[in-house]
């Protein structure tokens, strides 16, 4: 219980400090409104439904990018695990992948895919899929040879082997990939909306910034923070619950 208290204090104390600084005009409202005002602003926004369309748009694109990256990532990871040569070829790419500023390709995506949702989803997907591939590979790599032999002793076919042994074994590794993939999907989609898009939360934040509209910009930033923290924390909880079942924690 004490640790929960400390964690709460670690969030509340800096916020309180910020609140005091803002209220005393040491931090000007043009730079940052008081945290309490940001929260109230967000509340009003949700009540009025001003940005519902933008929220739905962003969450849909994130879900698309995330879903695609999980399915493609696991399939590609499993295929690469078997194709030794191709894997050797691609491994340096995976190692340096996150050093590539993927947004640099955004104009190219625009030209190829137009102004719709595709470029945003594609960037989210491209960021997320590699973490999913890498996690799948490390999960499959770590399968002990004896657990690869055991299904044969029980006369399991290839599909049953994957369903009853390989996937359950690799699940914790896949879960790590899933957690990263969802974070990358958020970063990819919202980032893309920021740069060149006419919809979504990222676009609304930039629009508010261009118009010096702090009363919209900060509540939206808070909203994004809340969504990504909530999603990741719930996934983390779920992961811990699964791990605890295996008695690993």
């Amino acid at each position: 219980m004490r640790i929960v208290l400390y964690r709460l204090l670690a969030v509340v104390l800096p916020l309180a400090l910020l609140e005091i600084l803002c209220r005393n005009q040491i931090i000007k409202p043009l730079t940052l409104p008081a945290p309490s005002r940001i929260v109230l602003g967000l509340w009003a926004m949700i009540e009025n439904g001003t940005f519902n369309a933008a929220i739905v748009k962003t969450l849909t694109n994130v879900a698309l990018a995330f879903g695609l990256s999980v399915v493609v990532g696991i399939a590609a990871g499993a295929a690469l695990h078997r194709a030794r040569l191709l894997r050797t070829l691609l491994e340096p790419l995976f190692a340096t992948y996150y050093a590539i500023p993927i947004y640099a390709f955004y104009p190219l995506f625009l030209i190829v895919f137009g102004l719709g949702d595709a470029p945003q989803v594609l960037i989210g997907f491209m960021l997320a899929v590699v973490s999913m591939i890498v996690s799948t590979l490390s999960g499959l790599d770590s399968l002990p040879p004896v657990l690869a032999k055991t299904p044969r002793v029980f006369q399991l076919g290839p599909v049953e082997t994957i369903r009853r042994v390989t996937l359950p074994y690799a699940a914790p590794y896949l879960f790590t990939g899933v957690k990263l993939a969802i974070a990358y999907a958020f970063i990819g989609v919202i980032g893309a909306e920021f740069i060149m898009s006419s919809t979504g939360l990222g676009y609304e934040i930039r629009f508010a910034y261009d118009n010096l509209d702090n009363n919209v910009m900060y509540p939206l930033i808070l909203l994004i923070l809340l969504i990504s923290v909530t999603v990741n924390m719930s996934l983390d909880r779920w992961d811990r619950a699964l791990q605890a079942r295996r008695g690993r924690v």
Binding site: P144, V146, T150, V153, V165, Y169
Partner: peptide
């Protein structure tokens, strides 16, 4: 039936 030297129990 086969029993191996290594731990072949399924951890999940």
């Amino acid at each position: 039936g086969v029993v191996f030297q290594e731990n072949a129990s399924f951890p999940w």
